[in-house]
Design a protein around this nucleic acid. Structure first.
Length: 466
RNA sequence: GUCCCUAUCGUCUAGCCUGGCCCAGGACACUAGCCUUUCACGCUAGCGACGGGGGUUCAAAUCCCCCUGGGGACGCCA
């Protein structure tokens, strides 16, 4: 069996969105799982809509997800010569012809077909006119007749009628640039692509491309058409649903591992297993696990997967990430401190943005700390302040500000005063964090440090009463 | 309009190919309880689906047909 080669061929007319990322992931996994190679190819034959910025954005997205490629990124705009050679070949072999019908004329043909209740298509007017190259001339493919059949990697045995699916579509624009169907087939053949996994919106292109493979005499690759991803309203994923760039999810505080795990489970399964490491995926991925029905993008589930990865990640891996998100909040801290903070939030944060926001009080200047009025009102009533003042005195005299020392001292205090622990915990918590919730009190105090803790308690004591 | 794809809990899915082990399993979400210094985590329990109708069969989520629902494609876009 020849070496497996897959590819991901986005057009640089937009960012790498959720659907594209999943397609890329499936192709990458298929290649890796079979010891094959993965090609990245930028389909920019539509010069009017393609931009270099988008090419970069796609590359960034792939890199973030950890989808590396063995060849490319190739730019189709660099390969016009190759496409033209193939077009000449098709012209010479009688599989293609020149056409001077105007777009308006073609529109009229399609409209007529629509009215007649058949598939709108070019009617072949120029097929036998033997036109040559010229101003305003396109090159059209001579559509074959008969049945087109293949065994889809996802859908199983498929067959379509060439007559129905393929008209004499344009191979080369009057402006001289090649069109999608021609360029993909030429490239895939030229790059030795053996397996093509793509969205099922390409299903109707398949007969066109198969016809081209046949006309060109190239070996047929395997095709697999994965279903679409919908938004929560069962509509095609669009900007309204957050079918944003995958990089937008990075901004929202999602981990790439979580994104990959979520994406792969959207349309692929392996028994009841939910969590897969990259290595496991490479080991376990098969086309057989691919689903044939569409799925919906669910941010809640992505979030829970992300929370899982935050819990499981080593502290060292999260420290630089936390620093990056803190920076967005205008905060910074050295890694030693962050390494103490991260474990406190691993069970609590669902995104890195959340982690940064929630731990911000550790890093703010004491004067900068804002107190939540509701928390103050509820937990810093006069009676609570009296206790808080005593706790402050107690802590002032504490030499060692470790978790264990704090626990010992505070417990003794509570017992001696015959208080419930909750009666000191909440006032202290609000005093040092500004809010009514935080990680455990001893850890929070210990990580915050004696100086800051005392200063904040002092400040809390002087807060206006209402 | 024409052609194509598709149909299991709210969502992602297992099971379907090779009918019986499925009065359908897991995960997320949700609800309740436990744990508890807050918020989380964790643990336990609960809620919750084979779209409808015909067949085939001793037996159908699984096979066949029809209907309905959902989606996609019909470009000098990719």
């Amino acid at each position: 069996m020849p070496k497996v080669v897959t590819r991901f061929p986005p057009s640089p007319t937009g960012y790498l969105h959720i659907g594209g990322a999943r397609t890329a992931l499936f192709n990458w996994l298929f290649a890796r799982a079979n010891g094959g190679e993965f090609v990245l190819r930028i389909e920019d034959t539509d010069q009017a809509r393609s931009t270099p910025e988008m090419t970069q954005a796609i590359v960034d997205g792939m890199t973030w997800l950890g989808l590396d490629w063995d060849h490319g990124p190739y730019l189709q705009s660099d390969r016009t010569e190759l496409y033209n050679q193939h077009i000449e070949k098709l012209l010479a072999s009688g599989h293609a012809y020149y056409c001077d019908c105007t777009p308006e004329q073609v529109d009229a043909m399609r409209e007529k077909a629509r009215v007649d209740g058949t598939k709108p298509k070019y009617d072949g007017t120029c097929r036998s006119r033997n036109l040559g190259p010229g101003e305003g001339h396109v090159v059209r493919f001579k559509a074959p007749e008969g049945l087109c059949a293949w065994n889809d990697l996802v859908k199983g045995p498929m067959h379509m009628d060439y007559q129905e699916m393929v008209d004499d579509f344009v191979l080369r624009r009057s402006g001289g640039s090649p069109m999608y169907n021609l360029a993909v087939v030429v490239d895939d053949a030229d790059m030795g692509v053996t397996h093509i996994i793509r969205g099922e919106d390409h299903l109707s292109n398949n007969p066109k491309q198969m016809a081209l493979y046949n006309a060109l005499g190239y070996p047929m690759p395997e095709f697999g058409h994965v279903p679409m991803i919908f938004g929560s309203d069962r509509k095609k994923l669009s900007k309204r649903h957050g079918a944003m760039s995958v990089m937008d999810y990075e901004k929202l505080g999602f981990l790439p591992e979580a994104m990959v795990n979520y994406l792969v489970r959207l349309g692929w399964g392996h028994g009841d297993q939910e969590v897969f490491s990259r290595e496991e995926l490479v080991k376990l991925f098969t086309a057989k696990g691919l689903n044939s029905s569409p799925s919906m993008f669910d941010l809640t589930k992505l979030t829970s997967v992300n929370a899982h990865y935050i819990k499981e990640s080593p502290v060292d891996a999260l420290v630089p990430l936390l620093a990056r998100y803190l920076k967005d909040l205008g905060l910074s801290a050295d890694d030693t401190l962050l390494a103490k903070i991260v474990p406190l939030y691993q069970p609590r944060a669902t995104t890195m943005v959340e982690m940064a926001e929630q731990c911000a009080f550790f890093l703010m200047d004491d004067e900068q700390l804002e107190y939540d009025p509701q928390a103050v009102q509820k937990n810093l009533k006069p009676a609570a302040r009296e206790i808080l003042a005593d706790v402050r005195t107690l802590l002032t005299g504490l030499d060692e500000f470790s978790e264990a020392a704090l626990e010992g001292a505070l417990h003794a205090f509570v017992e001696q005063r015959e208080l419930k622990f909750g009666m000191i915990a909440q006032p202290v918590r609000v005093a040092i964090t500004g809010r009514s919730f935080s990680p455990g009190l001893y850890e929070t105090l210990a990580v915050l440090g004696k100086d800051k803790a005392l200063r904040r308690m002092e400040r809390a004591l002087s807060l206006p009463q209402d």
